[in-house]
């Protein structure tokens, strides 16, 4: 009991444990699971990452002006939804060329605003995917 009183008293003079976020940034570990990044030049368009993704946050959809990559025979384009992604890393584990074509960074996604229309734009892609 006395111990607890002493502890309570000394706590009054301690620095707060909380961090004044966002004024003081929180240090991020380099292994922190963050955004998935894509290197188009190394991708072989095997679509394994798309199949492996549990929430379906990677979609390869047909495009009018495809990349110059010769592996891209079906004129597809990589689309990634950072707001749907759960950062599980399954796509990277499925990719035959991890680190070159697909890798996980420790970056955070930006805050989505209404103007970004993240949902609406993504629904369009999902519809295109279903139709193809």
């Amino acid at each position: 009991m006395i111990q607890s009183l002493i502890k309570a008293f000394t706590n009054l003079f301690k620095k707060p444990q909380t961090i004044d976020y966002p004024l003081t940034p929180i240090a991020k570990d380099k292994e922190y699971r963050g955004l998935i990044e894509y290197g188009e030049e190394s991708c072989i368009y095997c679509l394994k990452c798309e199949k492996a993704c549990p929430p379906g946050a990677i979609l390869f959809v047909k495009t009018e002006n495809p990349s110059a990559n010769e592996k891209n025979k079906k004129a597809l384009e990589y689309n990634y939804n950072p707001y749907l992604c759960i950062y599980c890393g399954e796509c990277v584990r499925a990719c035959p060329k991890p680190e070159e074509a697909l890798w996980q960074s420790n970056k955070k996604p930006s805050v989505a605003t209404k103007e970004d229309k993240v949902n609406d734009n993504w629904f369009v892609l999902e519809r295109l995917k279903k139709e193809s």
């Binding site: 570990d29 292994e31 699971r33 950062y87």
Partner: peptide, 15 residues
């Protein structure tokens, strides 16, 4: 936990 799994909660550690 964050160091080990890369996330504070929702570890997604088991496959």
């Amino acid at each position: 936990q964050e160091l080990l799994t890369g996330n504070r909660i929702q570890f997604d550690y088991i496959s």
